[in-house]
Amino acid sequence: MIKDITLGQYFPMHSFVHKMDPRMKLLFVTSFIVMVFLSNNFISLGFCLLVTAFVIAISKIPLKTVLKGLRPIILIIAITSILQIAYNEGGIVLVDIWRIKITSGGVLTAVFMALRISLLIVMSTMLTYTTSPTSLTNGLDRIFAPFKKIGLDFHTITMIMTIALRFIPTLIEEVDKIMSAQKSRGANFEQGNIIKRAKALIPLFIPLLFNSIRRAYELANAMTCRCYNGGQGKTTMNALKFSYRDYIALGSVAGVIASVILLNIYCGEYNAEFTFGITV
């Protein structure tokens, strides 16, 4: 059924990573992304790869599923790699046929870039795989709570996110139903040119719009009846609390930052010839 599509790609499981506080996960992922960008040699980046592998291992999410997350960006990785190979001329010439000249520098830079992009994507998908949308929204809500003092009301935004998440399955179901009903009256959503198709969507969107307005109105009433007043003085049942896991994660964040900086300093900046020298 159309409503069975999983949203936000959440993979419910019982693991160390799943049980971490969403705020800590956000902190971890953000610092990890910065560190991947800062890594300037293969050793640092290799270390980041190890960290990623470790996180995947303890999250209990199958490697195959994680790699699936890379599928949409394969093309980007491929194009970047080809450009690097084509234009980077450092290092030893490996192939030189007609006008194609491939150098070791080009190949290595391509690998470096591909690895960097992949790590960024994999770690970000790990965040959504191990954190339910609700929990993520909750985390964001709490992180941004202090900004209220300076007049930035993030609570409204996170409330909107929560309601959107709540109503997406309902609306998908509704679209499905209205489409079936209009098809029963001979509407054709699949044929014709763009203009014709866009026009065919009117019988779908008008009812959807009207129904959504009605829903919004009713929901607002129901929320008022439940004493909602814009989040003032609101408490939370599942108050986010740091557990030992989160302190371990905090330690790891510090560890990763320190390691990458040290590796960057001691192993030197990535340089095609140098690295090639080592690998040969």
Partner: peptide, 16 residues
């Protein structure tokens, strides 16, 4: 129903 999980929805009123 406001929340994406049953118990969180039930908690909405008391939280407010």
């Amino acid at each position: 129903i406001v929340a994406t999980i049953v118990e969180e929805d039930v908690a909405f009123g008391p939280e407010n």
